[in-house]
């Protein structure tokens, strides 16, 4: 009799392994029985210090919120040049980016075949600038320089990789 019971239990436990997990579940805490969470005061002892010299180090570690304005120097070893005042005399203006760089970019598409140079942020007589750029670039290139002007957005798109050539041209004019 006992043997049968023992064997039957074994069988049942092997056949129904999943159902056992719910039979012996015990709820150790209930929502109604547990108290609300309270703010616990830190047990660690600490002192609050307001030292302006130490706070300087904290401010040094924090980043600036705005890009700082460049300072006028005699020479810039890296080759970067700032925009000068005599730019106002020109019929067009190529405004610097917020990082004070010249807005000429290379766009590569079609897995490296198509290369376009974009000159952005152009104000004023954009067609005159396009003519001058074409003249300048045609001297170096055997192929005709193909370009497109978008007066509304102030962009000139030139076929080919002429980024550094255009940057040199604009830097000569202190743009």
């Amino acid at each position: 009799m006992s043997l049968r019971c023992y064997f039957s239990q074994l069988l049942r436990s092997r056949l129904s392994a999943h159902s056992n997990t719910y039979k012996n579940s015990v709820r150790h805490a209930t929502y109604k029985a547990s108290p609300f969470a309270e703010d616990i005061e830190p047990t660690v002892k600490y002192e609050v210090s307001k030292n302006p010299e130490e706070w300087k180090y904290v401010e040094r570690a924090l980043p600036l919120t705005i890009v700082p304005q460049p300072i006028r120097k005699e020479s810039y070893p890296s080759g970067w040049k700032p925009q000068t005042e005599d730019v106002k005399k020109l019929p067009y203006l190529v405004q610097r980016t917020k990082n004070h760089m010249i807005p000429v970019y290379l766009q590569i598409s079609q897995r490296g075949v198509r290369r376009h140079t974009f000159v952005r942020k152009i104000q004023g007589d954009i067609n005159l600038l396009e003519q001058e750029l074409k003249e300048f670039l045609q001297k170096e290139s055997f192929q005709p320089i193909r370009s497109q002007v978008n007066e509304l957005t102030g962009i000139i798109r030139i076929n080919g990789d002429h980024v550094n050539a255009i940057k040199y041209f604009l830097e000569k004019k202190n743009l």
């Binding site: 002892k45 600490y46 002192e47 609050v48 210090s49 307001k50 030292n51 130490e54 040094r60 570690a61």
Partner: peptide, 26 residues
């Protein structure tokens, strides 16, 4: 890690205050 700030300090940016531990162990 940072210049002028020791490990173990807590920096409070809103109150502009530094909390330093007083426990000897820490």
């Amino acid at each position: 890690i940072f210049y002028g700030l020791h490990p173990g300090w807590v920096v409070n940016l809103t109150d502009k205050v530094i909390l330093k531990p007083l426990d000897e162990e820490l």
